[in-house]
Design a protein around this nucleic acid. Structure first.
Lengths: 209, 209
DNA sequence: CGCAAAGTTAAACAAATGTTTAATTAACTT
DNA sequence: AAGTTAATTAAACATTTGTTTAACTTTGCG
């Protein structure tokens, strides 16, 4: 599916509202107000509120797949450095698209069936399989140790990053960084989180610190 | 506040529904149906749907505080082993109260202000301060290294555990454990997660693996 | 221009929402 | 047992919900 300028604007405004107040906590009238359109336009373009959410997932899902493949295919680079690139790629993505990741981390709790759950599962499967291949590659080169629980490792990477951005307001208060500007805080998070996740990942994959 | 038998039943049923369908996705009529009471009883006992959620948070919040204090105060035990006890305590708690933790991990994304956000922040602050003291104790005994980012460490512990239980259905499919019974799967998660988080925590706190 | 398709609008729709009312029943107290 | 408080009920309340309708304006094209 392709989206026109107006559709993308609606999707962006809806995304912001869904992130802030939840899918069920946001009414189509609020979306229409924010996007400065008539309520009927949402049904006209997307069919329904639910399908608008699906369109957002569809749109965001497509983007991420390419970046991962690109990194995996790189040659002349150590496996651990590929992992590092994937981590940094993920952190940048999650910081740039905080609203979408907030929605996803909320909706994946609720939707254990339905079209959105299927989209999420597909995304996860893709990522997982790519990383599994990468780790096997590292194991063959004896860079990584033999028994690695890929699922738990990814749960930690994704869980840490997700939890950080979904609870940013708590984190800021607890780490006494609430005087910082939002942009500076994001920058600071990016560096710290990158270092942190690379440290953990290295410990899990190799036997070094 | 104290809760009678009937109130507790309503809270338990509401908790299950909120976890499954979200706060805004659950109507008071559904709660009344599940708890086999009249709709008016919810307003009668709790004042409103919102205050029912607050009651759930209030009730669950009280329980957790005591257990932590108890572990912290233990003597004749290494600091790292106290951390291990706290981790196991947390894992057991999160597995026993999956519904509540699902609600919390969803609501803390939305509510950046409001009474529930304050309750969550208070819980987090308590835990954080207790663990900060524990880590300083370990640093004095030279068990732990000097520069430890407590915030990020806790983000990883909480984020990993949260992400695991909120996305259990995906995890089961991806790790090919969907043939297991639910009880067995929980048991299996508990052991794996405990080992995993202890490994990470040790790496962060000490310089050993 | 003329006309068909796409875009946009205000209004109306039924259904669902959280909360309250007023009446009735149950439980407890003296 | 009488009287008082607490518990429970069905019905009604006003809003809000997502979606649709039918009329209109704008746009693009031959």
């Amino acid at each position: 599916m392709e989206y026109g300028k107006k559709q993308l604007q609606i999707m962006a405004d809806a995304e912001a509202l869904f992130a802030e107040k939840g899918f069920n906590g946001t009414s189509v009238r609020e979306i229409a107000d924010k996007a400065e359109i008539n309520i009927a336009m949402i049904s006209y373009y997307f069919g329904s509120k639910e399908k608008l959410l699906e369109a957002i997932f569809d749109y965001r899902g497509k983007i991420s797949k390419l970046a991962i493949e690109k990194i995996i295919k790189k040659t002349g680079i150590k496996s651990i450095d590929k992992i590092y690139l994937l981590i940094d790629n993920y952190i940048v993505k999650i910081l740039e698209q905080q609203n979408f990741y907030k929605i996803m981390s909320r909706e994946q709790v609720i939707n254990s069936a339905g079209p959105i759950a299927n989209l999420i599962l597909k995304m996860k499967k893709n990522n997982q399989e790519a990383i599994a291949r990468l780790i096997e590659e590292g194991q063959k080169k004896k860079e990584f140790k033999k028994n690695v629980d890929i699922n738990l490792m990814m749960t930690t990477i994704v869980g840490t990053a997700n939890h950080l951005i979904t609870t940013k307001h708590y984190y800021r208060q607890l780490s006494k960084q609430h005087k910082m500007s939002d942009a500076m805080f994001n920058q600071s998070i990016q560096e710290q989180l990158s270092k942190h996740l690379k440290f953990i990942t290295k410990a899990i994959l190799t036997n070094e610190l």
